Computed example of a mutant assay.
Amino acid sequence: MQACSGAFSEAVDPDLNLGPGELSRGVRLDDLQCARASEFYRNLQPLMRFKGLRQSSRAGERIIAMQISNFKDMYLAELQELVSTEAQLAESLLQMAEVASHPALKEALVRHREQTEVQKERLVSLLQKHGADPTAHTDQAMQALIGETGKMVTMLKGNDLRDAGLIASAQRLEHYEIAAYGTAAALAGQLNLRDDQQTLHTSLEEEKQTDVLLTQLAKREINPHAVAA
C-alpha cells in the first residue's frame, strides 16, 4: 500500500486554499486505486475553481445578458440548469465508481450513471420542444458539490471508510437533484405543461428510488463495515 498525498498535492490548484493537513494525511490506497483517485481529483480541478461564487468578468457578462423576464423563461432556465447538473453528474459518477471498492456500491453508481444519461436526454428533448438551447446554463452548485466529493476522496483512509464517504457524497448529490426536479415539475404544473410535468416527475421518482437504494446499501453494508474497520 502507498500514501497518495504526493499525487494529490500535484493535482491540487493552489488557488483553492486547501490547508496542508487536508492533503498530507497519507491516504492509503493500492496502486490502481491511488491512480484512479488521483485522476478523479485532478479532473475535478476545473470545477473546483468555482469554489464560492467566484466568476470571471466574461461569465458575469453572460449572466447579465441572460436576464429572465417571465415565468416561462424561468422554467426553461431551470431545465437548462438540470441538463448541466446531469451532464456533470454522469462524469462524476463514473469516476466515483472507479474509486469505490465495494462491488454493490460500484454497481449502484454505474447503474445510476446510465440512468442519468437517460434523464439528461429527457431534459434536452423538453428544451428542444420549447425552442431553447440545452447548453445555455451551467449549474455551479453542482460543480461545488462535485468538488467537495473530490476533496473527500483524498481525505479518507481505507477502503471501507472511503466507500462510506462516497455513498454519503452520492446522496448529497441525489438530494440536490431531488430538489431541482421537484422545483422544475412545480413550475411546469404552474404553466399547465402537463406532459413536461409528468416527464419531470418520472425523473424525480427515479432520483428518490436511487436515494432509497443508497440508504439501504449504507445502512446494511457500507457503514457497518466502516464502523468496524
Results as ranks from 00 to 15, higher is better:
116 T>N: 07
119 Q>Y: 04
75 Y>L: 11
97 A>M: 08
112 H>Q: 13
88 Q>V: 01
120 K>C: 10
122 R>M: 11
102 H>I: 02
115 Q>V: 02
77 A>Y: 00
120 K>N: 11
107 E>K: 15
73 D>C: 01
103 P>R: 09
88 Q>M: 08
79 L>C: 14
135 T>N: 15
91 E>V: 13
74 M>P: 03
83 V>W: 02
72 K>E: 15
128 Q>E: 15
79 L>D: 12
108 A>H: 01
83 V>E: 11
128 Q>N: 13
97 A>C: 03
111 R>L: 09
79 L>W: 00
120 K>V: 01
125 S>H: 04
111 R>V: 05
72 K>C: 08
107 E>F: 10
75 Y>V: 08
128 Q>A: 12
110 V>I: 12
121 E>Y: 02
109 L>W: 08
73 D>M: 10
123 L>P: 10
127 L>V: 05
131 G>H: 06
128 Q>G: 02
80 Q>G: 13
126 L>T: 04
98 E>Y: 14
81 E>L: 14
76 L>Q: 13
79 L>Y: 05
93 L>D: 09
93 L>S: 08
97 A>D: 13
118 V>Q: 12
89 L>F: 00
77 A>T: 01
71 F>C: 04
135 T>E: 15
121 E>D: 08
109 L>P: 01
98 E>A: 13
71 F>N: 02
121 E>S: 12
115 Q>F: 01
74 M>T: 11
101 S>C: 15
71 F>K: 03
105 L>R: 07
117 E>V: 06
119 Q>E: 10
90 A>K: 12
95 Q>N: 14
92 S>F: 00
75 Y>K: 08
101 S>N: 14
95 Q>K: 14
75 Y>W: 13
85 T>L: 12
89 L>W: 00
102 H>K: 03
107 E>A: 15
109 L>A: 06
108 A>W: 00
130 H>Y: 07
83 V>I: 01
112 H>K: 07
88 Q>F: 05
116 T>F: 03
106 K>C: 09
91 E>Y: 03
124 V>T: 08
82 L>N: 15
95 Q>P: 03
83 V>T: 04
82 L>C: 14
87 A>T: 11
105 L>Y: 07
114 E>G: 02
99 V>L: 09
75 Y>N: 10
99 V>H: 04
85 T>H: 10
117 E>P: 00
133 D>P: 06
93 L>C: 07
114 E>P: 01
115 Q>G: 06
108 A>R: 09
132 A>K: 01
113 R>I: 04
99 V>R: 04
109 L>K: 03
94 L>F: 10
130 H>E: 12
96 M>W: 00
96 M>G: 07
130 H>N: 04
86 E>A: 07
72 K>H: 12
90 A>V: 05
98 E>C: 06
121 E>I: 03
133 D>Q: 07
